[in-house]
Amino acid sequence: MRPAESTPLLAPAAIAETADTIAAVQEPDGAIPWYTGGHTDPWDHLECAMALRIAGRADAADAAWDWIRRTQRADGSWATSYVAGQIKDEFADSNQCAYVATAAWHTWLATGDRAFLHRMWPVVRGALDFVVALQATGGQIWWARSASGAAYPEALLTGCSSTLHSLRCGLGIAALVGETPPGWEAAAGALRHAVGNHPERFADKRRWSMDWYYPVIGGAVRGSDGRARLRSRWDDFVVEGLGARCVADQPWVTGAETCELAIALHLVGESVAAATLVRDVQRLRHVDGSYWTGWQFAERVYWPQEQSTWTAAAVLLAVDTLAGGVTEAAFRGDDLPAWPPAPGHGSDGAGSDGAFEDPQRSCA
């Protein structure tokens, strides 16, 4: 891992410029699609809201939260995708629904606005109750529920790792608003144990880089075990000078995966390597401050031909993390309740021995 230079990752003016490109794509109802005319999904919409907040675009972030409140369904879920204000894919993705808790906690850290937490508490509670109802007996959480109410009996390691952190954020919000949601603590303990110890309970997605690093971001594997995990497949996914592949078997580095890997590295003390990756990904920066989704380095072309809002958001969140901003605190778990125990595992259900190798935004 080569050293990073000492210059800032992004100047304030560049951060503002990138945030403005995200806000420019936002639709009149507050939705933030992947790109103009594209679809909106709740997870990436919330990631963009987080990035807008830390970049000073409170107006756009507030509009994004208003969209979340208006579009939540009676069962606590959101549809998986929306286009131009209409539902495109009606089924609900558990991780997309859970992420509202992570984003709400991030907003709390950025603003200190307790009224916001109280306003969003019914939204967070409904979402996490929906998610916990999809937990299997082995601790893993099924990835989706159909419009008719049937669970899809498959669990995804990336999604469950992200959901794990969201559950802990939900517990933190509950404590601040004086609520005790039944079942969340036990669900988080069981999920953490599954993520940290039972790779066989998850679909085999090891070709995706997210399955490699997301257990670190989600908090199931940290410290020396987290470092060992990230070293274990470094050569499979990281291309020197370019960033991280989305999938191990394609000559394609992607900005979001590279920046998420940088966050994971920073969380386990590999901040020099993290900064290097964020600098490497600047080759994807467009002249207007947006970011191409990825670079196909065999053909030497940007692919796909889009500047995705969630790639720009991932860059801003990684920059904030490495600068010691609220994003670092949010993912490090500052001020969150202690990890709940796994069933039958005393006070620490981590089981984080770094012994599993195994995610998913859709990659070819």
Rank of each mutant, 00 (worst) to 15 (best):
V319I: 04
Q305A: 14
L322Y: 07
H286A: 15
A273P: 09
A298Y: 01
A275S: 13
V287I: 07
V278I: 15
R283L: 12
F297E: 11
T293N: 10
V278R: 06
Y291M: 10
T311E: 11
G289E: 06
D320K: 12
E306K: 15
D288L: 12
V319F: 01
V301L: 13
L322R: 00
A313R: 03
Q307G: 12
G324N: 04
G294T: 11
R285M: 11
D288I: 10
A318N: 07
T276H: 11
S290K: 06
Y291Q: 09
T293M: 15
R300P: 02
E270Y: 11
D320F: 10
V268I: 13
V319G: 00
D280G: 04
L277P: 07
W303N: 08
W310K: 04
V278S: 07
A275T: 12
E299K: 05
A313H: 04
L277I: 04
H266W: 04
W310D: 00
Q282N: 08
L277T: 03
S308V: 02
T276V: 15
L267G: 06
H286D: 14
D288A: 09
L284Y: 03
Q296N: 14
V281K: 01
R279S: 13
V301Y: 02
H286K: 04
Q282E: 13
A318Q: 03
V281C: 14
F297I: 08
A318K: 06
E299V: 07
W303A: 07
R279V: 06
R283Q: 12
E270R: 09
W295C: 04
F297L: 10
A273I: 02
W292C: 03
R285Y: 12
V315Q: 03
G294D: 09
V278M: 10
D280L: 03
A273K: 00
W303D: 12
D280R: 05
Q305M: 11
V272S: 15
W303E: 11
W303Y: 14
T276R: 14
L284N: 01
A313P: 00
E306G: 05
W310S: 01
E306S: 14
A274H: 03
Y291R: 01
A314R: 01
P304S: 05
Q296T: 00
V268Y: 10
V287R: 09
L277N: 05
A318C: 09
Q282T: 13
L317T: 14
Y291G: 03
W295I: 07
R300A: 13
L316D: 01
Y302T: 01
W295P: 02
S271C: 09
T311A: 15
G324Q: 03
V281E: 09
Q305S: 13
Y291V: 09
A275K: 06
H266A: 15
S290Y: 11
R285F: 13
W303Q: 08
Q282S: 12
L317W: 04
V268E: 02
W292R: 05
L284V: 08
L316N: 03
S308Y: 05
T276M: 11
V268W: 05
Q307V: 10
Q305T: 14
V278H: 03
R300N: 11
V315E: 02
V301A: 09
V315M: 08
V278L: 12
S290W: 07
G294Y: 06
W310V: 01
S290T: 13
G294E: 12
A314M: 08
E299F: 05
H286W: 14
T276Y: 07
R283M: 12
W303H: 12
